[in-house]
């Protein structure tokens, strides 16, 4: 990809990421009562000045539900990304540096978690315990810890023989400082950004997927982009807006987060060289 296209991609995906963040934050403070919102006078209205994206089969404003629907994945997605990156980063730094039984045990545990098929594991968890979306996000974050740990560990091992790391050791800079600041923070941020964005997208995918399927995830009348799309099952062509808007939002948001994470990371890695 040429620099020009990747710049454009970065801007576009960045705009979506920022928009989702802003909407996600706004949604947290907007009051919304799904029962109140029902209006049988205005079922399946097309877009208008009053309802920019029209209304759904129960006369509820689609835009409002789209905004409020971010609540289902926004904080969980951030939390999952943060868990994966923080725990994965620390585990990677530790296993890339330390030796001894504790390291071996941690490496074994990471390998074990890494072998779990993530989606199957989460769906199995749902059938057994039907956990809340935030809990699923925590689990998703944990399931990505080995991935993050591996890339960080490789980086730590690769940098260990660099002159400047040797010089830092000779000067007596502490291992914690060298590992956490010089390597994890300064050298690994692009790949941490990439992973965090990926896990956010993953949580969004899992949440909307479960909510779409209906037995798990967010249940009507609470809004989720997933259960909004699920209306397609009942509408039978009566109106496209109620499910098309959230469907597009899901695809565009996931694609943007993945692209943004990759492009930022690539730019960062180019700058490191």
């Amino acid at each position: 990809m040429t620099a020009k296209w990747s710049d454009l991609g970065l801007r576009l995906s960045g705009a979506v990421v920022v928009a989702v963040m802003v909407v996600g934050l706004v949604a947290l403070v907007i009051p919304y009562d799904p029962a109140d919102a029902v209006s049988y006078d205005s079922l399946l209205n097309p877009p208008s000045a009053a309802h920019w994206l029209g209304t759904d089969g129960q006369g509820r404003d689609v835009l409002m539900r789209l905004v409020k629907g971010t609540e289902a994945f926004f904080l969980p997605g951030l939390m999952g990304g943060l868990i994966a990156v923080v725990l994965g980063g620390l585990a990677g730094a530790y296993t890339g540096y330390a030796s001894g039984p504790l390291r071996s045990a941690l490496v074994g545990l990471l390998q074990l978690v890494d072998t779990l098929p993530r989606l199957v594991f989460i769906i199995l968890l749902c059938t057994i315990r039907n956990p809340s979306i935030p809990l699923i996000a925590v689990v998703a974050g944990l399931l990505f810890v080995p991935t993050v740990a591996t890339v960080v560990r490789r980086k730590v091992e690769a940098l260990a023989s660099e002159d400047y790391i040797l010089a830092h050791i000779a000067h007596g800079f502490t291992p914690a400082r060298i590992l956490l600041h010089h390597i994890l923070w300064l050298q690994c941020w692009p790949l941490l950004v990439r992973q965090a964005a990926f896990v956010f997208g993953y949580v969004l995918f899992v949440e909307t997927g479960l909510s779409y399927l209906g037995d798990y995830g967010v249940q009507e009348p609470d809004p989720s982009w997933g259960n909004m799309v699920a209306q397609v099952k009942d509408l039978a062509g009566a109106g496209a807006w109620p499910w098309l808007a959230p469907a597009v939002a899901i695809v565009v948001t996931i694609a943007s987060f993945l692209a943004f994470g990759n492009l930022v990371a690539r730019k960062g890695e180019e700058a490191l060289r």
Partner: peptide
Amino acid sequence: WGQFATAVFQNPKQSLD
């Protein structure tokens, strides 16, 4: 390290973060 002795290498550019 650092207190008793430390080192300066060749390749000054690679010796700095």
